[in-house]
Design a protein around this nucleic acid. Structure first.
Lengths: 195, 195
DNA sequence: ATAATGAACTGTCAAGAAATTATTCATTTT
DNA sequence: AAAATGAATAATTTCTTGACAGTTCATTAT
């Protein structure tokens, strides 16, 4: 006899396994339900639709990604500028690898992007917060002069769009993308460095 | 009795009309040929495939767009920085409008992007050259300090990806996109301005 | 009364057939 | 010989229909 919370967790785990393995489209709600010893009708008492379940998975994947960026940010760097660069490169690598090696996850992300953009925007906002904290540190240390760090973080995020899931718009390989990302980041950093 | 050049031009005009009106997929080579009083077999003596014909149209549309950017660049501005901003905004507006009001052209551009990326890259290179010339002017006037203007132009182009055909990745309306583009451009410009 | 079920209902997908269109080439025209 | 044609060939798209899957709800179980 499971609690509501336990059932919810079991469904999420089951969905995670099936979506990752077979993709969103090929996974049926019936097999997700069966995997946690539940009827498909009962599953709908916990999640109102298949899309909502996928949104939850994408949200969890994104939070995992944000946590990873925080770990990258927490390492030792010689400057806040280097820290910003490390964040952008980390995100480039992670999204590049997702598209290369986890196509089912990437496809699900794309579906969520069209049908549940709020989930994507939340992920972007969380990511942006990590970046903003780094900018704040740079301000505190005197390295950066930024009137509005939240706005600057937003601008940097917009300017580095090309380096998230880059295969969508570029045929460059990862080393070339990293070089380009570093070039863009250097230019942006010069725009916020204390003169 | 037409010359080869005249026949080629007639085909291009015919294709332009039909592709713009009905879209690439819905237009048949037979109707393009008929419109210029030619058999469909003869049409293939001028263009090896339907895709090649579309690539030519996209190329011409792109050259038109580059010429427009040159006109924008040629206006009077108080600074090279303002000129760069005007270029980015002009491209944003033009691509936004194409997606909104000329969906058949946009769709054809997308097909060419996947199947004939060389045409797209050529268009980007031509656009970048306009930007580079503006950067060169800024260097000559002492406004900018840029070691490699061709590289800087490339970086600026990468950083402003979001503002070409923006509806592909954003739900913001045009005014909001312009504000964001200006924010990004200001940051980039601060990265190249003479200190 | 609440929780769970599984078949029915509704909507979507996929495979195969039919229709359409891109392309070729044997034939005709110039 | 070179240019043009239009039907044949090959490839792609569209349509049809049965299968499949998302979702609901009458019924059963707790």
């Amino acid at each position: 006899m499971r609690t509501t919370e336990e059932s919810t967790q079991a469904i999420i785990e089951s969905a995670n396994i099936f979506f990752a393995r077979f993709g969103y489209g090929k996974t049926t709600m019936t097999e997700i339900a069966e995997y946690c010893d539940m009827s498909v009708g009962n599953l709908y008492r916990f999640f109102p639709s298949k899309l909502d379940l996928a949104a939850k998975i994408v949200d969890l994947v994104t939070q995992e990604s944000v946590a990873n960026l925080r770990r990258v940010s927490a390492r030792k760097y010689r400057s806040s500028a280097a820290r910003v660069e490390a964040l952008v490169i980390a995100e480039l690598r992670e999204t590049f690898e997702t598209m290369e090696n986890r196509p089912t996850i990437e496809e699900m992300g794309r579906i969520i992007m069209f049908k549940r953009v709020d989930v994507i925007n939340k992920g972007l906002a969380d990511t942006r917060r990590v970046l903003e904290e780094v900018l704040q540190d740079g301000i505190a240390s005197g390295e950066f002069t930024i009137p509005k760090p939240d706005f600057a973080a937003e601008m940097i995020q917009a300017a580095t769009l090309k380096f998230r899931y880059p295969q969508l718009w570029s045929r460059l390989n990862l080393p070339a993308l990293e070089r380009e990302a570093k070039g863009v980041v250097r230019l942006l950093i010069k725009g916020v460095q204390t003169r």
